[in-house]
């Protein structure tokens, strides 16, 4: 009896281990499939551009020890930092306020449309939902007209340019911040609304009976309970706005206010050919902030999605 059980056990153990081997092989294969482009990018970005041509881009640069691998150099990264520095600063000036504003306003709007009861809120809410479906292409020309001809933002901004760290071209970034906040607001409101619908009505009523005003209920009850959702919205909006090129091209067009995605378009391209190591280093550098946001807010993001 016991030997029989042992034999069955062994066979199943063998079956399991075979299945495991296949599983791990598939997982490793998929991992490699996803990671090779990034690995190639990193390897390319640390090759001396002069020795790049003819080398295998996915191998580490080990010349002159190993032939045809290129020579190690940090020159592409130096070039990327020099070339994108201004754009990175502009992007940070744009993304941080736009993300915080759209998150905060979205949360407030969702609170007003969900937790507080008033006549006509469904109509307003439908306008918000409709906002999600406005195609980008439809607003590009009106946006240019609006910021360059309708609103005298450039003139109104001039007195502020006298302040330290403020440049006169920053008005374009202000226009872009407002545009991104407005465009991100509907989806942020929708996300927060889904979260607030799950909060207990009785808890809000208890706060009302405790003497709290609408503003206090938001500040002391709703806001602290929204932190996981803020992580979701911040990551989403940060990535969206950081990676946006279309609105930047439309509103900033060119000049000192150009953001990192605009600078990335032209870097490493010249009459004499494409500087691939420089372009790779620049692409990695431009993607780094979004990666850092995921790393720092990832655990809260997971909580927010599960909430």
């Amino acid at each position: 009896m016991s030997t029989e059980t042992g034999w069955v056990g062994e066979r199943s153990l063998f079956g399991h281990s075979l299945r495991r081997i296949i599983l791990y092989a598939v997982l490793v294969g998929m991992g490699a499939f996803y990671l090779i482009p990034i690995e190639t990018g990193i390897m390319t970005s640390i090759i001396n551009p002069a020795s790049y041509t003819g080398s295998f881009p996915y191998l580490p640069p080990l010349e002159p020890l190993v032939p045809n691998t290129g020579e190690f150099s940090l020159e592409p990264w130096q070039g990327a930092i020099d070339g994108l520095g201004q754009g990175l600063v502009n992007s940070v000036i744009l993304v941080v306020p736009a993300t915080i504003l759209s998150g905060l306003l979205g949360s407030m709007a969702a609170f007003g449309l969900t937790t507080i009861d008033w006549r006509g809120q469904i109509g307003i809410y439908i306008l918000f939902v409709a906002g999600i479906f406005i195609p980008y292409q439809a607003v590009l020309v009106p946006l240019t007209q609006f910021w360059y001809n309708v609103v005298p933002l450039q003139a109104a901004f001039q007195p502020l340019a006298a302040l330290p760290f403020v440049e006169s071209y920053h008005w374009k970034l202000v226009a872009l911040i407002v545009t991104h906040t407005a465009y991100g607001l509907p989806i942020c409101t929708l996300l927060f609304r889904a979260h607030y619908k799950k909060l207990s009505d009785e808890m809000v009523e208890a706060a009302q009976l405790d003497g709290a005003s609408v503003a206090t209920i938001y500040r002391r009850i709703i806001l602290p309970l929204s932190i996981p959702m803020f992580a979701v919205v911040f990551i989403y909006q940060f990535t969206q706005i950081w990676n946006d090129l279309l609105f930047a091209l439309t509103i900033i067009q060119f000049g000192d206010a150009a953001v990192v995605t605009q600078d990335l378009v032209g870097i490493g391209v010249s009459q004499s050919g494409t500087n691939f190591p420089l372009r790779m280093a620049a692409a990695l550098l431009a993607a780094l902030p979004t990666l850092l946001v995921y790393v720092f807010f990832g655990d809260k993001f997971a909580k927010g999605v599960a909430a």
Binding site: S200, E202, M203, E205, A206, A207, Q208, L209, D210, G211, A212, S213, I221, P224, L225
Partner: peptide
């Protein structure tokens, strides 16, 4: 009068405590 000004306290079925 709004609830806040009635000087009435209520105990709810779900207790409605502030979880944070």
């Amino acid at each position: 009068k709004p609830p806040a000004e009635r000087d009435i306290a209520m105990v709810f079925q779900s207790y409605a405590l502030y979880p944070h």
